[in-house]
Nucleic acid binder design. Structure first.
Lengths: 211, 211
DNA sequence: CCCCTTGGATAGTGGCACTACTCAAGCATG
DNA sequence: CATGCTTGAGTAGTGCCACTATCCAAGGGG
């Protein structure tokens, strides 16, 4: 199919598709002449994934490019590629290492990881943006006067561990390795708004029950 | 204290504080003369909350204003004010009611709510941004070919219900009504990055375990 | 033959969260 | 009293981001 059809079938304007092509979120089509290109079902599928990541998942364009690139990088092994989406979080700016709230938060998180038996915390997790983000969030809560120590965090961590089992099961249902990578990216990012929405709705429900 | 001290103690520049004052995220200080104002501990506390909502929670400034206003609105009853944070989500733009994926998603979500026994789904939830967001997310997953029906969603919903119990317990620990409102806002928004980070870390952990 | 589409390129738009600058009124200190 | 600094108010500017619009020349199709 041509650009116009790709646009129509995906619901993304041709201008935006060109933008994504420029930004490397989408492979160029097979050039059939100097002024014409042919796109396939794979392009359509990819485009829909990119759109969902950006619109539903709120992933910045630059981060989406990284994720896509890592997912396609044949030189990386399966496990690393599966983790591609994890590294796409907007990494918070300043370290702010001197802040005492951050130092306390770091210790709480270390203790939590130990309690959860997440052994990889030793070296790898320090470079994981999720780890930094967790510490920053805990520090912010502490600054506001909400305890947020290991005890408070533990149920959240245990729930996260349960979710991970469910999520990885869904990934492993995919037959092909490529499908698994794509599923990992899509499910990691796109279940986040699902989870958050459900939590907020559960808050409303539970609040209605109590008052 | 004066503006400069408020700035120093909160770590927020005076320019930004003035911006927040203009935007109504912060009450003006008690005017002690035509060119001087006095701020108290309450201002500092509020400023820290606003900062955390915006920086950690990623809440847009306009939404933060709404939340703050609702939390302060004495005419609303306790339950409604507790729900203030829930309504602060950036409400997705177009309804896109004609999309068949959205219609299917809507039915899945309805069924899910019934299965979870979340009875308020009848009328109130339709106006809840979280509900719309959930439907949009499910529709996006469906478009990508991931089933995401009631069966898949159910464990997430049950986990969300568990979280809500824990969260509301933390809110009820606060002695004063005002404190409860503030806690509801802070915990709703600021535990979101905590939960998301933990889920991503759990993915990494579980993936490492399996491969 | 002529209009339309395409890829490539460049520039512009609108929104957001600040940030910089100016101004005049005062307070505080020597 | 003079001086210099801070304050609130207002306005304009900045940087980033995700597009969006416009133009162009080459080429294909009815």
């Amino acid at each position: 199919m041509r650009l116009a059809e790709l646009s129509e079938r995906s619901g993304v304007s041709t201008a935006t598709i060109k933008y994504y092509l420029r930004e490397g979120l989408l492979q160029p089509g097979r050039r059939v002449s100097a002024t014409q290109a042919e796109y396939g079902e794979g392009h359509l599928r990819r485009l829909r994934l990119v759109r969902a990541l950006i619109q539903i998942g709120g992933v910045p364009v630059a981060a989406a490019r990284e994720v896509i690139a890592a997912a396609e990088d044949e030189s990386l092994d399966h496990h690393l590629r599966l983790g591609a989406a994890t590294r796409a979080l907007p990494s918070a700016g300043a370290p702010a290492e001197d802040d005492p709230a951050v130092a306390t938060a770091r210790r709480s998180v270390e203790a939590l990881l130990e309690r959860l038996g997440w052994s990889s915390g030793g070296g790898l997790d320090m470079h994981n943006p999720a780890h930094r983000r967790l510490i920053d969030s805990v520090a912010a809560l502490a600054r506001l006067g909400y305890p947020c120590d290991t005890e408070q965090l533990l149920p959240y961590g245990q729930l996260a561990a349960q979710l991970a089992v469910t999520d990885l099961d869904m990934v492993e249902e995919q037959p092909t390795p490529t499908g698994q990578i794509e599923a990992a990216v899509a499910l990691t990012v796109l279940y986040e708004p699902v989870l958050l929405s459900l939590r907020r709705m559960a808050h409303a429900e539970e609040s209605a029950r109590r008052f």
